[in-house]
Nucleic acid binder design. Structure first.
Lengths: 196, 196
DNA sequence: GTCTATAAAACGATAGAC
DNA sequence: GTCTATCGTTTTATAGAC
């Protein structure tokens, strides 16, 4: 499997990201060596340092890429002028689907925060807070319109997201429930939990 | 800080557990060395092997101890003949309080599962499932009595526990909300989410 | 851009003295 | 039960050839 010498910048970079993502999710950041990543890509360990200054920055770039993709996808869907109930339903469906499609990214983004440097941690947390603020705005809009009853919108935001994140821990494609059924069940619980 | 030679079996054991718990929670199992744990206890690394055959078994014993304590505490409180609404409220309050009192244990029990051997993993998962079954039984009792409307009790169980677990990620003693307020807010959401 | 080779340090676990 | 000492490996990261 040893690769011959030569330049492969355009394809090696994405392959490193993909290998690191999978291995970090499976074994954990600290338990994965640069040699393991290189082996999966088919290069020697030293070659990885043409693409990242160090191991931790590689992790950070993966997490930041995931969070930015999440924010962009959400922004492209949300309709701030729509009915709060419709917005909330769309959020629930979007969140479940987006996260189920990216189990490795989600796992890493929640489990490996402690392996980031202080400033990289702050950057990821800021992106996460921006995403949470999107849901909180929906809840506040619903409360202001008398459609929702939520004693504390900030806590309700965190509660809803935690509940939806839980889907990733048990859902398996081809299992007892279809994705559409899962979306319906969770939407039903969220809708009732915040109902006026 | 070097300790003199001598026998300290009765106190060293618990101190190893406490140090390992704290360090695993803070840095992750794979990122913590046996030397680090020993240093925190005040012994040499080799002495740890009087208390555990290897590092992974140390992790397993911590996780198993936590899960068994959880099950025992829950069993001591639950009243299977009580009203399902009362049982559910007690579950919510118990779960939040028990987990907030043990942030390190909870963090490890959820984050370090992949560092267990196959059989140790199965043992922990069995204990966790027993705990989940307790909540599921309450939901089924409420559904049977016409007090709850839950399309899928198994999923609702996982959703409620995921939501409650989320408290550990943000709650800080002395913060904006008291523990009692948190319990009330979450109970309100859970109650509504499963309401008939 | 990738290779080989290596530096410098840390790892889990064990042996044997006390 | 704890110590010192160490074995055999593995680690991240770098240097220099190609």
């Amino acid at each position: 499997m040893a690769r011959t010498q030569g330049s492969h910048s355009d394809i090696t970079g994405p392959r490193i990201d993909a290998a690191a993502l999978r291995l970090f999710a499976q074994f954990g950041f600290a338990a994965v060596s640069m040699r393991q990543i290189a082996g999966e890509v088919g290069v020697q360990a030293g070659a990885l340092y043409n693409y990242t200054p160090d191991k931790q920055t590689l992790l950070f770039r993966l997490m930041r890429g995931h969070m930015e993709e999440l924010l962009a996808a959400r922004a492209a869907r949300d309709a701030p002028e729509a009915d709060p109930l419709d917005r909330l339903r769309d959020f629930v469906r979007f969140h479940i689907r987006f996260h189920l499609e990216r189990p490795d990214e989600v796992f890493i983004a929640y489990m490996e925060l402690r392996n980031l440097s202080e400033e990289n941690f702050a950057a990821i947390e800021a992106l996460r807070r921006r995403y949470e603020d999107g849901l909180e705005a929906i809840l506040r809009q619903g409360v202001a319109a008398g459609r929702f009853t939520v004693p504390d919108p900030k806590i309700a935001t965190l509660a809803v997201i935690a509940m939806l994140n839980g889907v990733n821990t048990w859902y398996r494609s081809g299992g007892r429930l279809t994705l559409a059924e899962v979306e319906t069940i969770y939407w039903d619980m969220v809708r009732k939990a915040v109902a006026a």
